[in-house]
Structures are given as structure tokens and as C-alpha cells.
Design a protein around this nucleic acid. Sequence first.
DNA 1: AGCACGATTAACT
DNA 2: GTTAATCGTGCTC
Length: 192
Amino acid sequence: MPSKILPVPFYNRPTLTVARELLGATLVREEQGVRIAGMIVETEAYIGESDLACHAKAGKTPRTEVMYGSPGRAYVYFTYGMHWMLNVVTEMDGFPAAVLIRAIRPVEGIAIIAARRGKQPPAKWTDGPAKLAQALAIDKSFNGVDLYNRNNGLWIEKGKTITDESVTIGPRVGLYTVPEPWKSKPWRFIEK
DNA sequence: AGCACGATTAACT
DNA sequence: GTTAATCGTGCTC
């Protein structure tokens, strides 16, 4: 049986295309042989130094270095003093861009997710970027790891195809101090 | 060395 | 609707 894991060429494409096509894909975390997985239902694109919402606006720094690297790797960063965010690096080596995985729908490893997120109702287990990172135990140690093989306990598999009728496109969120037009770019993709 | 801010969340009123 | 929590990062001095 051929691997279901999305290969490097999938990520080595325009970021908006990758963000759109990641909807329906399966984000998989494997811990000690146990799978925790969910279908990706919300993404956002962050594209290049000219995108003033993208961390790469500051240029290549220790923090943003991964985004400048080869596609198909994880860019994990820390914010608000307590939250981890998972992104997937896109486009050619040298161009800084990534897709933020904003939400997933739990499919496997529900018991583990419940143990980590059980204080909240199931609908709120993985409906935000910091929430899914917590549910899947993703932190700084995953920054820069390959997502196109099983070596690192984190990868993305081809999943369900989502039709355009089931996709809502809108502006990215949380960009309070980002100037226009970047603040309103319709670079957020949601599976209804 | 110090500072302002943040691709958020949960718990409030 | 508002706001505290909490600290790495990048910028200024």
C-alpha cells in the first residue's frame, strides 16, 4: 500500500494552494505507537517578508529561520507567554512562507485528547491553534522537523477531498496591529 | 539591560 | 462584550 503521507512536492507550491488543499488532510501525532489524529478544518497562509502579518517581515532571524528553509517542515513558535502554534513551511527553499494549522476535528486518540483537553467541552478541544498544539503535545521540540515521514512522530496524511462549496474563505484573525492591506487579505480557509 | 508586543485562550461581567 | 495570564523575540538604548 502506498504511503498516505503528503510528500515534499505537495508543500513546494504557492502557499495559498497548500493552505486550501490542507483542508481535509489528516494531522497525525504518534506517541509511543499510539496515534492521535484529526482532520484539518481551518488554515491560514503567511507569505513572505512583504506580508506584514508574517513573522518573516522581520527578516531572517533565529526564530524565523525555519520558514526560510525547505518546504514540508514544521515551524513551531511560542506566543502570548503560554501558547504553541503549529505551521507547515511552504514554497521553495529560501522563500519564507508557512501555513498555520488553526483547527482540526479529532478522529483518533480521542481518549488522550480528552485527558489533555477534558476541562473543556469536546467541541472546544481542538478548535484553535494553541488548543490543537496542546491536545497533540506539540512544542518547541517539533520546530524544524520533517512532516513528510514518520520519523518524528508528527506528519500529515492525504485525507478527504473538500469541495469549494464546503470552504469558507475570509481574512486572517488576531492581526490587531497589522496594517492594511495585509490585515484583510482573504488568506484564511475554513471547512464548514 | 530594558521594553513593548503578540498568527491566543479561558474566565470573567 | 472585556481582560488577565505569561515569556520569547526583536528592537532600542
